[in-house]
């Protein structure tokens, strides 16, 4: 506390006469805002013009679909366990393929998801990754529960993110 009041005092003392009468400072502030008024605008006019996020962006989580047409997920349920929002439900079942298990049901409730990316981080199979999709709007609760049909995304569309993960995870 003592320190702050000291530094406050010092600050007041350090002010020059012109700063103290305040009006030139106001003028400076006004000049600054005026300068900004005539600068180019940053606004992106959304529906016409879309933001393409960088690979580090965490959009909605999706399941990786291999080129062979199989999902990578083995339904281990770790993502479901780690998900702080309990958004994921996985039901495993047996498959003839070598990996033995596959998700018979894989649902993410997008109303629960908080886009933390923990599911992606915990997945031992690199099977769930955060996509760049941020356009999520629903008109009822049921629509917000994404099943495998909406989650499976070809690996070719996720190259960016997977590369990013391999580099930084």
């Amino acid at each position: 506390m003592a320190q702050t009041s000291d530094s406050l005092k010092k600050r007041k003392k350090d002010l020059t006469f012109w700063q103290k009468i305040y009006i030139p400072e106001i003028a400076k502030g006004l000049a600054l805002t005026f300068k900004n008024m005539i600068r180019p605008k940053f606004t992106m006019e959304y529906p016409e013009e879309k933001f393409i996020p960088p690979p580090s962006y965490r959009g909605r989580p999706v399941l990786v679909l291999e080129e062979t047409g199989e999902e990578r997920c083995v339904a281990c349920g770790l993502c479901s366990r780690v998900c702080p929002a309990l958004a994921i439900e996985v039901q495993a079942a047996e498959t003839e393929r070598e990996k033995e298990r596959y998700p018979q049901k894989f649902e993410i409730n997008m109303l629960r998801c908080i886009f933390c990316g923990l599911c992606e981080e915990v997945c031992p199979e690199e099977a769930i990754v955060m996509s760049k999709d941020y356009e999520l709007a629903f008109t009822n609760r049921e629509d917000a529960i994404y099943g495998k049909d909406k989650l499976l995304t070809p690996v070719s569309q996720l190259k960016d993110r997977i590369e990013f993960l391999r580099k930084y995870k």
Partner: peptide, 10 residues
């Protein structure tokens, strides 16, 4: 409008 301009918006 002016608020927007001052903040580099449209």
């Amino acid at each position: 409008k002016i608020a927007a301009w001052a903040q580099n918006r449209i």
